[in-house]
Computed example of a mutant assay.
Amino acid sequence: MSIPVPVLLTLLVLAACWGHPATLPQTSTLLKESIRLLSELLETKVSCDKMNVTNIFAGNEKDNDMEILCKAATVAWEGQSCHRHLEGIYLNLLRLVQRKSGVHKAPCPVAAGNTTSLTEFLGDLRRVLQRLVKG
């Protein structure tokens, strides 16, 4: 028994459409998991909480969300020596950027300049991720 070509093409198109909505829940899951990890980090007090990191949130109103997440991935990567959970946050941000942006290739370069404490960075990042989950 053979399947006519138009029917086969229709089935292929439908299969492709079914796969697309699955990316939204995966994105939401990555965001929620990152928020959970950030909350755990903010509750844990360690000596390097006051470590200075690049403040990617200072004066960057022109940056889009993917650029912010890409830069945040870089800062998370650089801060892994302080908190082991930062590796999970880095990997989640990396996946989000790779999935959502054809322009940015994480980790993105961050310009030296304004700095903030690691704790402040983590709090700001959590607020950005919470805004993205709601939106």
Rank of each mutant, 00 (worst) to 15 (best):
P107F: 05
L93P: 02
A76P: 01
A111S: 14
S2Q: 13
A73K: 05
K32L: 12
R99F: 06
R36C: 07
P25K: 01
R131D: 15
E67D: 12
C82R: 00
D65W: 02
P107C: 04
R131L: 12
T44C: 04
D124C: 04
L31I: 13
E87W: 10
T74S: 13
D49F: 02
L30F: 11
L11E: 06
P21L: 05
M51P: 00
P25F: 11
R95V: 05
A58D: 04
Q80I: 10
L86M: 14
I35W: 04
L41G: 13
L38S: 11
S39H: 12
E33Q: 15
H104Y: 15
D124K: 12
A72T: 08
L96S: 06
S117G: 11
W18I: 14
V5Q: 12
R36P: 00
L91R: 15
C48D: 07
T10W: 09
V103F: 15
L86W: 14
L30R: 15
E120D: 13
S28I: 10
H83C: 01
A58N: 05
D124W: 00
I3R: 09
W18N: 04
N92H: 14
S47K: 11
S101I: 05
N60W: 01
D63A: 13
D65N: 11
D65I: 12
D124F: 00
T119L: 05
T10A: 15
L42A: 11
G88T: 08
V13K: 03
Q26L: 14
L118N: 08
A76W: 03
T27Y: 03
I56N: 03
E33N: 14
M1E: 14
L9E: 06
G123F: 06
S47D: 13
E78M: 06
A15D: 03
C17M: 14
L38G: 02
L96A: 07
L69Q: 08
A72W: 04
L31K: 02
V46R: 13
Q130T: 13
N92Q: 04
L9V: 15
W77T: 01
L125K: 08
S2W: 12
D63Y: 12
K105R: 11
L31C: 08
P4G: 04
A16Q: 09
N64F: 04
E87C: 01
R36W: 12
N60G: 07
G59A: 00
L91M: 13
G59Q: 01
Y90Q: 10
H83L: 04
M51A: 10
R95T: 11
L41K: 03
I56H: 06
K62G: 04
P109M: 04
L37Q: 12
K71A: 12
H85M: 07
A112Y: 07
L31D: 10
T74P: 00
E120I: 09
V110W: 03
N52K: 15
L37P: 01
F121E: 00
W18G: 10
Q26R: 15
H85Q: 14
A72L: 08
L42H: 06
F57M: 03
V46Q: 09
K71P: 04
N55R: 09
V103G: 00
E78D: 13
G123S: 14
S81Q: 08
M1Y: 14
L8G: 01
V97H: 05
